[in-house]
Design a binder for these strands. Sequence first.
DNA 1: CCTGCAGTACGACTTTAGTCGAACTTAGCA
DNA 2: TGCTAAGTTCGACTAAAGTCGTACTGCAGG
Lengths: 125, 125
Amino acid sequence: MSSTAGTAPAIKVLPAPPGLPEPLPEPTVEELRLETVLGALSDPLRLTIVRKLLLESEQFDHSCGWFGFDRPKSSLTHHFKALREAGVTRQRQYGLERRSHVRVDDLNACFPGLLDLVAAWAPEA
Amino acid sequence: MSSTAGTAPAIKVLPAPPGLPEPLPEPTVEELRLETVLGALSDPLRLTIVRKLLLESEQFDHSCGWFGFDRPKSSLTHHFKALREAGVTRQRQYGLERRSHVRVDDLNACFPGLLDLVAAWAPEA
DNA sequence: CCTGCAGTACGACTTTAGTCGAACTTAGCA
DNA sequence: TGCTAAGTTCGACTAAAGTCGTACTGCAGG
């Protein structure tokens, strides 16, 4: 996998089509680590976020407020950042809003079946 | 919080054949929680344990020392206990030794595909 | 320009998890 | 009977995560 030259050049930004904001910094596909992704998904709130993104219209990115959590904004920022830095989600800045979506293709390529488990997850009774 | 109504009243112990020690306390299948299992697997050492159990002769249970980690015994106890309490492994006492194996059937039933990811995992370069 | 709003950054605090030494428990064995 | 080895339990310490208030940035609309 790490066939790329010595120090990974860390291509952070994708060739975004014109008009589409560039993603915030995130790990590349090669940098995705199972233990990190599992750690990011071992939290009920983050599991809820990812599951909701998967089940309800993955076609669009969704802003932080779309989820309707009644937590302080700084807490939400923390969790969205954790998901992005683990490589689970991608975030783009649209004007005022920062919208997220799940990196479905990357995750299915690296960890096939994992997202199915998340989609099938049910929050504790 | 038990479960499906009526049947299956939390079978903690298996119908162990005579001569086979009973498993140490562990969550039932209904009690398995995705976030807990993922949390247990988000540690490299524990991932190593489970992967090694999966790849090298799952037919037999393996004692703590079989893995050959050069960590203090109290640390190992900690991690084996974490895996067992999350429902990932089952432990039985054989004389002096406490042997572990992965609860393959239970995990495949609850979280299909998860163990494949663990088996395919490679410790960080 | 000013104001309001989405969200971040920082920092303090609390909680949880990992690490490991030391003392203890128990089975097998001479 | 007493030794040894596998593993536990306890407790202290440390490191990492989660929580959230406050201050800040930066776009939009009047």
